[in-house]
Amino acid sequence: MKLIYSPASPYVRKVLVTLKELGLEDKVEFVKVTTSVVDQSDVLAAANPLTRIPTLVMDNGKPLYDSRVITQYLVSLVPSCGYYPASGEARWDVLRLEATAEGMMDSAVNARYERGLRPAEKQWDDWVDGQMKKVHGALKALDGEAASFGDGINAGIIAAACACGYLDFRYGDMGWRNTYPALAAWYAMFSERKSMQETQPPA
Results as ranks from 00 to 15, higher is better:
S41Y: 06
F190C: 15
L97Y: 04
K122M: 09
V28T: 11
P202H: 11
D126H: 07
A90N: 11
L139D: 04
K32C: 10
L97Q: 08
P119H: 04
Q197D: 11
S36Q: 08
G23M: 07
G116D: 14
I53Y: 13
V12P: 14
I4N: 14
A108S: 15
A182Q: 14
M132Y: 09
T199N: 11
P201N: 10
T199R: 07
Y187S: 03
L22N: 12
A120C: 03
P201Y: 03
V28A: 03
G23R: 09
I153H: 03
S195F: 06
E192Q: 15
P63H: 12
G165K: 01
D129R: 14
L22T: 10
N154K: 01
G137D: 03
E198D: 12
Q200H: 09
G130F: 07
R177V: 09
S148I: 00
V75E: 15
P54I: 10
D168G: 02
Y113S: 14
V15W: 08
T35G: 05
Y187N: 04
D42F: 07
K27G: 13
G172E: 14
F190G: 05
N110M: 10
N48A: 06
R115W: 03
S107L: 11
A47W: 06
Y5M: 09
V31C: 14
V94H: 00
Y65N: 13
A184E: 13
Q131H: 06
T199W: 01
P49K: 11
D143H: 05
H136N: 13
Y171L: 10
C162Q: 01
K2N: 10
R115Y: 00
E21W: 05
A184I: 02
A146M: 03
G175H: 06
M132R: 02
Y73H: 15
F169M: 01
K133L: 15
S80K: 12
N48V: 08
G150V: 00
P202T: 02
S107P: 00
V128L: 03
S195M: 09
V75Q: 15
S76Y: 06
S9G: 04
Q72P: 12
K133W: 05
A182P: 04
A147V: 08
T18K: 13
V15G: 12
R91N: 05
M174G: 00
D59P: 11
V135W: 00
G144L: 04
T100V: 11
P79N: 02
M132G: 06
P79F: 01
L56M: 11
K140P: 00
G130Q: 01
T199A: 03
G172D: 14
